[in-house]
Design a protein around this nucleic acid. Structure first.
Lengths: 342, 342
DNA sequence: ATGAAAGCGCTAACAT
DNA sequence: ATGTTAGCGCTTTCAT
């Protein structure tokens, strides 16, 4: 036999050779099938299928294309509400042929910056950021590398960076006013760490302002910042219950914490809402199936994710996208709140 | 001035030029910093930082390296339990410097194959698969492209493909035997679609066999296959309650469905476990905070994810990995089950 | 309609 | 210790 020069394997050259055409032709049947004669196209396709050949996305991206990948940065994954928006993003992107890479910063801006750097390194076509509290310079890096991005969960005061969010402060006021309107005056607060979480901060502010507006002094012994697990809400509620005079209501700025708080009240022999009212935040599915069903503030998490993804993909496609997109929130009154017992 | 030939920008050549060194040296300060003289290293680093230069991962991968990306395929994202294992995978991989790309197949093998193809296209270094029910040829493609993978949630009967799982059948028996030991004879079943979900199928089998072993005939009117939302459990339980003679217990092969079922019983004026016992499956966090607290079967989802990721990363590193890794499950008895009322 | 050849930005021998 | 150079697998003018 003649000495055969290495026949390259799972590469476009290998396919080209096996099909007796040039690499350009193979590339064409993959990217612009109708620019190649049907008969040769079929021949090439046959070789491709026989070999399970799959075009190398790295090489393709390098040769000028996009990576068809977008990055999503969230602060934590243990808060179910982020799962909701992230899911919506993932679904929309997957349908559009984009892959999504999720990075979790654990509320650490430096860590976040490092993770975003890895996203840039992977040449994601765009990025969805969560909230504020970003490392200074993060925006500069994104700008410099020409990576479009949109911010969710928070309206960026600064430049005209596109954002999709709702008003956390107003939503917090909604919850508090509901409680105050029911006659409650001594109200406990359970929320996230306001020092590292601007959403928690907004809600805490709403709590304080709502009280102040009715001439009620804020008792910081009634404020508990915790993580987002049931156990955290349970424990925080325990602390509130043991701070006399006993509060007649609790605002948990998260449904999971609220359900934990309800369990604590139950454990303390208190009836909800007979003895104590509890209002949550998010309107997770559990809110409709807890006992009692939870009064809460509905937050448009899935919509936010979907819209953010839509806008980002538009941006990636070079379409212009206007500034902020503010979504509405709603008070959902169920069975966990009632007028203050007389 | 002399005509300056284009000075390349955010590329290794641009940095090299600006720092007055060769591209090889820049590459070295990035990949093997200690092989380059401290003084030049600092100089190069300075230029890199000033420009926020970030090495192109596509080019790097193409030039022979790995992509430092792994793919994870799950059937659905609305079943919280997958979130648990996926989170564990994500965490471990992120820590190890790997990005994870999640794809959701919605229980459609063809869709799954297509999504996996996209993963291969992105040259992921490895893949974590969920359950069985894969398209024939999926394994062949992975084999052919030399992509290591591990299977979770299910022991693969076939070849020696590494898997990390627990015994769904045995776990189902555990739940059923608990109910039967309490004296229950007429038991409803709520589970996933056994036609597209081998885990659901195993649990359904366990249900039937457990009944048969005690000489109890299976009444298919008591079996309800549904999705994994609270509402599905609620609705299924409603159907079971209205099938006389009324069942004295329900096995919900998922905690979310179980909580939904409890709500349905409450709504029907039935006390749990006084009038009817309910056992769940998974031991999600909610199980400890529902009212009453839910008896369930603890499934090692997070461990499974973590171990699967560890094994995959080992595989990626060329380390050998033995066959199946079976994790234990536990019956967690809480307050939602009781002896059959006399 | 198809082929030849020049890069895309990087790493990795091989030199020096 | 640093520079030169040849690809990695692909897309894409530019020819034919």
């Amino acid at each position: 036999m003649a000495s055969d020069s290495k026949p390259p394997p799972q590469t476009i050259r290998g396919i080209a050779k096996a099909a007796g055409v040039s690499t350009a032709t193979v590339s064409r049947v993959i990217n612009a099938p109708n620019t190649v004669k049907p008969s040769t196209r079929e021949a090439v396709l046959k070789v491709i299928n026989e070999n399970d050949y799959i075009n190398d996305g790295m090489a393709r991206a390098l040769a000028g294309g996009r990576t068809k990948t977008i990055g999503v940065a969230i602060p934590t994954i243990t808060n179910s509400i982020y799962a909701s928006s992230t899911q919506a993003i993932q679904r929309l992107c997957q349908t559009a042929g984009y892959a999504v890479i999720l990075v979790v910063s654990d509320f650490d801006p430096v860590r976040e910056r490092e993770l975003i750097r890895r996203l840039v390194e992977r040449r994601v076509d765009g990025i969805i950021l969560t909230g504020a509290d970003h490392d200074p310079g993060l925006h500069r890096v994104l700008e410099r590398h020409n990576i479009p991005y949109v911010v969710t969960w928070r309206v960026e005061a600064e430049a005209a960076v596109p954002c999709v969010a709702f008003d956390n402060y107003a939503a917090g006021r909604l919850a508090m006013d509901h409680l105050l309107d029911l006659g409650h005056r001594r109200i406990g607060l359970i929320c996230g760490e306001s020092g590292v979480n601007d959403r928690a901060l907004q809600r805490r502010k709403a709590y304080c302002d709502a009280l102040a507006d009715r001439g009620i002094a804020v008792d910081t012994a009634l404020i508990h910042e915790r993580a987002f697990e049931f156990a955290d809400g349970y424990e925080a509620a325990g602390a509130i219950l043991s701070t006399p005079p006993r509060a007649s209501a609790i605002f948990a700025a998260n449904d999971i914490q609220a359900v934990g708080a309800m369990a604590a009240c139950r454990g303390a022999g208190l009836s909800v809402p007979g003895d104590i009212s509890i209002i949550g935040f998010d309107d997770l599915p559990i809110a409709q199936f807890s006992a009692p069903r939870l009064t809460t503030v509905r937050v448009p998490a899935a919509d936010m994710g979907r819209i953010a993804a839509e806008r980002l993909l538009a941006l990636v496609d070079g379409k212009p996208v206007e500034g902020s997109h503010i979504l509405p929130v709603d008070l959902i009154v169920r069975d966990s709140t009632a007028p203050i017992p007389t």
